[in-house]
Write a protein that binds this DNA or RNA. Structure first.
Length: 555
RNA sequence: GCGGGUGUAGCUCAAUUGGUAGAGCGUCAGCUUCCCAAGCUGAAUGUUGCGGGUUCGAGUCCCGUCACCCGCUCCA
């Protein structure tokens, strides 16, 4: 086992980790020979095996041998493997398209976001700027400048006027008197100022071009303060593609930003075909895509990444219990694969940072790892969220069948939309955390500068078989042992160069054990076992190598 | 998206006011070698991130671009 460092921010440099990943073939930049492409990463031979070990461990522990539930009975979790491209309506129903294909403005102070074309403003000035049509026209033509008095977010001019009239506080120092009537694109209202002078006010949707250049003069619709709004920006977090040879609006589709929606849309088929009943889980491993604004920190925020997701369907009233259960279970799982120290933590979210689907739920938490680049802070590995019945309900509504799609409890015949607890883990982030945790500088050690102390279950290479020298029958014995073991384990053999160099290379690859055939082997059928972490050797019978691995690595 | 920095062999780094792109390590091959990047001999490796410009001549100066790093921003 590795002995975890309490805080490796001072001892581990991300640059060194990235360099080792590159040099030894764990992780490379995608399309490197063309200069790379921002936010995309490839796994080399050692990295591909490492990531596979992580995903295999997850698959084993979730689907093949799921843990026991709160009542002591094994959970029922079945896998699916859904497509990356789905019907575009999936993403409308899930809420991914709605708010994110339009120019959006953020209020930096309140962190609220709204569609730029929903912003309406009231223009009014003390000096009676709008008391005649000519002045209004002059303003509309841009010949005179009038700053907006206040703004509101509204779906249409009527709603905007109603909101403005209804909020006497933000209207100050003006007071609403009466409607004046429709203008060409806007609406005029009569106001009075504090000296009871009549002031004409006009409400218009904010011109998008003016908003872009003059955003600093527009008060926040939430606080009334100027200077806290960001420029309108297109938030298109989803990758767009086109299905079929014709590229037009009708053929537009998206690469999924999360694997979860495949599970939700096939929930009914799973129920109909798999003899599962609530509570049960559906799990999936697969790629997802997000057009991140700033991909950074090595593979941590990649635009193409792989998720390991469970949607665990439950009765609504049991949400709190199951949320607790999955929180604790998933935290323990990450510990079990080698992230056992103080670099791993569980963090409950504050209510304010919750997503749209989780506002009213039993909770959301993250399993977080202290990466060298986040230290002393932490970065998310897995989020566990109570998503309520948001998604099933949304899809039932969007596809038009509505309550007919409610789940029927086969025992009680009750009909309801199950709630869901979603433990959603990042395979790439998990791999990166395992890499960072394993990375160990070895300043006092001969040969290697660094070694990788993977837990045996994660190690890309489980053992190496070396002939001590490349003659005297040793290579033949090594080759025989290698061929015998490689059916069960990832094993390497190497006869070239000095034994020290070969050990050192295995230390860097994180191989837990090396078996060496030496002069004694032919005589008494024993080999040496070298332990990666201590560099100490012991001698075992060559017939016991396989059982040694079974005991120390698992099968 | 904004500001700053960096970019020479797989890695670490050299290269005189602008004047022939090199070294160590690693890698590979052969020999040697009975336990920790050991030794000997040899070999391969670059349009100096990419593209323009200035110049008789650019790794070096200028512009653009790409990637990475740091700080903002962003991260339903």
């Amino acid at each position: 086992m590795t002995s975890p460092t309490p805080d490796h921010s001072s001892t581990k440099s991300m640059d060194d980790i990235v360099a080792l990943c590159r040099r030894r073939g764990f992780i490379w930049q995608s399309s490197e020979i063309y200069g790379g492409i921002n936010g995309f990463w490839d796994y080399g031979p050692l990295g591909a095996q490492l990531k596979k070990n992580l995903k295999d461990a997850w698959w084993q522990d979730i689907i093949k041998t799921p843990p026991a539930g709160p009542d002591g009975n094994d959970l029922d979790i079945v896998p699916v493997d859904c497509t990356i491209i789905m019907h575009p309506k999936v993403w409308e129903a899930s809420g991914h398209v709605g708010g994110f294909n339009d120019p959006m403005v953020d209020d930096k102070e309140t962190k609220q976001r709204f569609r730029a074309d929903h912003l309406h403003a009231l223009f009014a000035e003390n000096k009676g700027a709008f008391d005649n049509p000519q002045t209004v026209q002059a303003w509309r033509d841009g010949r005179i400048k009038v700053l907006p008095h206040l703004t509101v977010v509204a779906n249409g001019i009527g709603e905007a006027v109603a909101m403005i009239k209804g909020n006497s506080k933000s209207l100050k120092p003006f007071r609403y008197v009466e409607d004046f009537g429709d203008l060409e694109d806007g609406y005029a209202i009569k106001l009075v100022d504090k000296d009871n002078n009549t002031v004409m006010g006009v409400v218009y949707p904010v011109d998008q071009e003016i908003l872009k250049s003059d955003i600093a003069n527009y008060p926040s619709p939430f606080t009334g303060k100027r200077g806290t709004l960001t420029e309108p920006r297109m938030f298109n977090l989803m990758f767009v593609t086109y299905v079929g040879a014709l590229q037009d609006e009708d053929s537009k589709a998206y690469l999924r930003p999360e694997t979860a929606q495949g599970i939700f849309t096939q929930f009914w088929n799973v129920v109909d075909t798999s003899r599962v009943k609530v509570p049960f889980g559906i799990a999936q491993v697969g790629k997802a895509f997000r057009n991140e604004v700033t991909p950074r920190n090595f593979t941590f925020r990649s635009r193409e990444f792989e998720q390991m997701e469970i949607e665990f369907f439950i009765r609504p009233e049991t949400a709190a219990e199951w949320y607790q259960y999955w929180r604790d279970t998933r935290y323990a799982w990450w510990q079990s694969i080698g992230l056992a120290g103080a670099n791993l933590q569980l963090r409950e979210h504050d209510k304010e940072e919750l997503s749209h689907y989780a506002k009213e739920g039993a909770g959301v938490c993250d399993v977080e790892y202290r990466f060298p680049f986040t230290a002393p802070g932490f970065g998310e590995l897995e989020g566990i969220a109570h998503r309520s019945d948001f998604d099933l309900k949304a899809h039932a509504t969007a596809c038009g069948k509505g309550e007919k799609m409610m789940y029927r409890d086969p025992v009680t015949n009750e009909k309801f939309f199950p709630h869901v607890i979603e433990p959603s883990a990042g395979a790439d982030r998990g791999t990166l955390a395992v890499l960072c945790e394993a990375f160990t500088p070895t300043p006092g050690r001969a040969g290697t500068q660094y070694m990788m102390r993977f837990t045996p279950r994660m190690a890309p290479i489980k053992a190496a078989i070396f002939p001590l020298v490349n003659k005297d029958g040793m290579p033949e014995i090594a080759d025989k042992l290698y061929r015998q073991l490689r059916y069960k384990y990832v094993i390497e053999t190497d006869a070239k160069q000095s034994i020290g160099k070969r050990y050192a290379r295995m230390d860097e690859a994180g191989t837990p054990y090396c078996f060496t055939i030496d002069g004694e082997t032919a005589a008494n059928q024993t080999v040496t076992v070298r332990d990666r972490d201590t560099a100490e050797q012991s001698r075992i019978n060559i017939d016991q190598v396989e059982s040694f691995l079974a005991e120390h690595i698992g099968s």
